[in-house]
Amino acid sequence: MMAYMNPGPHYSVNALALSGPSVDLMHQAVPYPSAPRKQRRERTTFTRSQLEELEALFAKTQYPDVYAREEVALKINLPESRVQVWFKNRRAKCRQQRQQQKQQQQPPGGQAKARPAKRKAGTSPRPSTDVCPDPLGISDSYSPPLPGPSGSPTTAVATVSIWSPASESPLPEAQRAGLVASGPSLTSAPYAMTYAPASAFCSSPSAYGSPSSYFSGLDPYLSPMVPQLGGPALSPLSGPSVGPSLAQSPTSLSGQSYGAYSPVDSLEFKDPTGTWKFTYNPMDPLDYKDQSAWKFQIL
């Protein structure tokens, strides 16, 4: 009977010793046993002879290597770790002494450095960015050149030099007046198309007034536009458009034309069986010896 009264063996659950049927240790109110408190290391007290050895090595170098620390530790009968900690504390003490010396050398008012006064946003004049500046400075420094007289040679050079070769001289006033084509001369031969040399188009003023001019072949195509416009036809070669000034309004060009419109200028042929003959000019830059190549039959 006494065997049943004795408590059973101890069981360990999660490293906790349980005594038989008792489960009081598993209750929430019972805390787990805490780790033992780490003991504080005792402070090391250095003797005068030990301090002399350490100070002598510190005077040589503030960062001794492990071999120098072990050698000193053997002399003063201390572990190497204590020597390492002593050098660490000695360097910190040396830095603190240097900072105190710097503070003593500075004057009393030198510690508080005078800061520059901050400028207020409204006091300083700042350039306004509302208006974009002129990058080319046209509004201040540029002045347009004065327009020359209508009959000045410089204007003629600016007008005619675009179309004339570089080897030719500017046309005088008398020749510029001949550039304007007359109405009857352009409409006299509506079906004849003559190819003149390129030099005649640039230099010869008579080429624009003769039936064999460069633009005589364009007349049949330009004249039928007159009834559609409801007024006189516009002429690209009329009046002052080739003269001194090219800047004319469309209203000033509306009254200039080749001449009176005639039914002869239409595109319809009077004789459907007729042929169109292209007159060959020996001055043509295209060297075609066979003139029969310039004739064709309209079917």
Results as ranks from 00 to 15, higher is better:
245 S>F: 13
293 A>K: 11
133 P>Q: 04
248 Q>R: 10
187 T>A: 08
147 P>E: 08
21 P>G: 07
50 Q>C: 15
282 P>G: 04
195 Y>F: 10
183 G>D: 01
48 R>G: 12
174 A>P: 06
120 K>W: 01
33 P>T: 04
238 S>I: 15
282 P>E: 02
211 P>T: 06
151 G>P: 12
238 S>V: 11
238 S>D: 02
104 Q>M: 07
258 Y>F: 09
211 P>A: 05
21 P>A: 05
194 T>Q: 02
78 L>M: 11
131 V>F: 03
286 L>G: 03
130 D>H: 12
250 P>F: 13
182 S>W: 12
121 A>I: 06
198 A>Y: 09
274 G>Y: 12
120 K>C: 00
240 P>A: 05
51 L>M: 10
133 P>M: 06
205 P>T: 07
259 G>I: 15
242 V>M: 11
235 S>L: 14
196 A>R: 09
125 P>H: 09
192 A>V: 14
283 M>D: 03
183 G>K: 10
15 A>K: 03
108 P>E: 02
114 A>C: 05
149 P>Y: 07
76 I>M: 10
37 R>A: 09
253 L>P: 02
182 S>L: 15
160 V>I: 09
225 M>T: 01
168 E>H: 11
295 K>S: 03
54 L>T: 13
267 L>R: 02
96 Q>G: 07
276 W>Y: 05
49 S>N: 05
13 V>P: 00
129 T>Q: 06
295 K>W: 12
247 A>H: 08
3 A>S: 03
111 Q>V: 10
161 S>E: 04
4 Y>E: 00
260 A>E: 02
249 S>W: 13
299 L>Q: 00
247 A>F: 15
213 S>E: 01
62 Q>I: 10
123 T>S: 02
256 Q>F: 15
286 L>D: 03
98 R>K: 06
48 R>K: 09
13 V>T: 02
53 E>I: 03
239 G>A: 04
209 G>F: 13
126 R>K: 06
162 I>E: 00
119 R>C: 01
193 M>H: 01
57 L>M: 11
153 P>I: 13
193 M>N: 00
232 P>T: 05
275 T>C: 08
203 S>R: 11
150 S>R: 10
228 Q>G: 07
236 P>Q: 04
129 T>S: 06
97 Q>T: 07
40 R>E: 13
145 P>L: 03
169 S>V: 10
199 S>K: 10
248 Q>E: 05
116 P>I: 03
26 M>R: 07
246 L>C: 02
181 A>C: 09
289 K>I: 04
48 R>C: 06
236 P>T: 08
299 L>S: 01
282 P>T: 03
101 Q>A: 04
197 P>C: 11
70 E>M: 11
43 R>S: 15
143 S>N: 03
7 P>D: 00
277 K>M: 07
144 P>C: 02
85 V>P: 15
279 T>F: 10
270 K>F: 02
204 S>F: 15
